[in-house]
Design a protein around this nucleic acid. Structure first.
Lengths: 207, 207
DNA sequence: ATTAAATTGTTAATTTATAAACAAAAAGAT
DNA sequence: ATCTTTTTGTTTATAAATTAACAATTTAAT
């Protein structure tokens, strides 16, 4: 599982960019904390762990912290991503315009169904067989799996074989990968079910 | 933040259903653990915390555990969900057919842009102004926010005002809500950035 | 220059989550 | 019927994450 502190660092970055675009030059742990929904101590602790240092009494210099976070997250280069599965989610992500802002780029889409490839697309699309060719040619390390549950593990195997090292998985299965490949799962249905559970529980507790 | 054990319970459920459909009647903590990617002790601990009990030496009776988890998750009724924002993700989720299997139903979609409402849709769509009317009429407690960052907090306020108690948020902002409203965030970009960080770090460590 | 106020950064304490250990119970074999 | 094996369920231990506490430092004011 990916550490929580790095996930928060990513959030801090977005927040710092927002404050910077509003004209601020400095920010306090308290402000940042409130914006992210954590305690100021958490912010300082996270910053400390990644050696992001501020100025006592004067807070953090936004540009300075951003430079260092950008360095941490390797924002100096654009990270290429492939997408396997051109169904509902796949198509939606391909249409999404927010990747470029964050120095990421979807470079290719794949599907086993030739019908899905014909669609007028913002990125080149290929048969799933071409995964190794494209991954190696473009030197891609990150892939998204947006295929049905039944196909997910096989797609995953192909990706790993091709050299993918990080996978964002939308299929509702736990993928089996070698230890040097890291998987991050997203489960919309699961999250909704968890929300149902918590809200129903809260409802009961009131009564 | 939603507890991790309930999130795993939701995963166990999916896994149990899969095993059941394969013809199994019983299952061991070891098997379930392997499938979900946790330790058998974790499974037993989770089950213990929710009073899901098995049979020593004979493992867990799938049907029995499923009945109890279904009860926990209130699977006896269908949970209505509204979706605000009919852009890329909104449209994709509306097309998604997996909600019914899990006793959930998208009952309405909303957008401020009238152009978005005209699209041939599987569910009724309304202007965002209609949120309170529909939520109260249909008695909905769960909502999805799939609008741009700038609009998210206002949409959230409207939802809360209308009576929504659980929100799945795709916008990259921390929403401010009263304590009885629970928010679950999904950040595709954030997750991808985290994957980039971890894979680059692994790469360095090898060399 | 000295003092006061504010905010960081680190250390300590607490809580939460995960992993390990082991006793108890059930099934099956002898 | 007794013993052995297996697997649960609970208890204890470890690790991770969060929160709290407080010393150190910088700024600004007197």
């Amino acid at each position: 599982m990916i550490k929580k502190n790095i996930q928060r660092i990513i959030q801090y970055r977005m927040c710092l960019l927002r404050f910077q675009s509003l004209g601020f030059e400095r920010i306090f742990s308290y402000t940042l904390a409130q914006e992210i929904g954590v305690s100021p101590e958490q912010v300082r602790k996270d910053f400390s762990q990644f050696h992001l240092r501020g100025n006592k009494k004067a807070g953090y210099l936004i540009q300075d912290i951003l430079d260092q976070i950008n360095d941490l997250l390797h924002k100096e280069d654009i990270h290429k991503i492939i997408m396997v599965g051109l169904g509902n989610i796949g198509q939606a992500l391909i249409k999404y315009k927010g990747f470029a802002n964050r120095n990421m780029q979807l470079v290719a889409g794949f599907d086993i169904d030739p019908a899905k490839l014909k669609k007028n697309c913002r990125i080149p699309t290929f048969s799933a067989k071409e995964i190794p060719v494209v991954v190696q040619k473009e030197n891609v390390h990150i892939g998204i799996i947006a295929v049905p549950e039944a196909a997910a593990q096989e797609v995953c195997n192909n990706m790993v074989e091709a050299g993918i090292k990080g996978i964002l998985n939308f299929a509702p299965v736990m993928l089996k990968t070698p230890p040097d490949v890291v998987v991050q799962n997203i489960s919309v249905c699961g999250d909704l079910e968890a929300l149902v559970y918590v809200t129903e529980k809260n409802k009961k507790q009131e009564s």
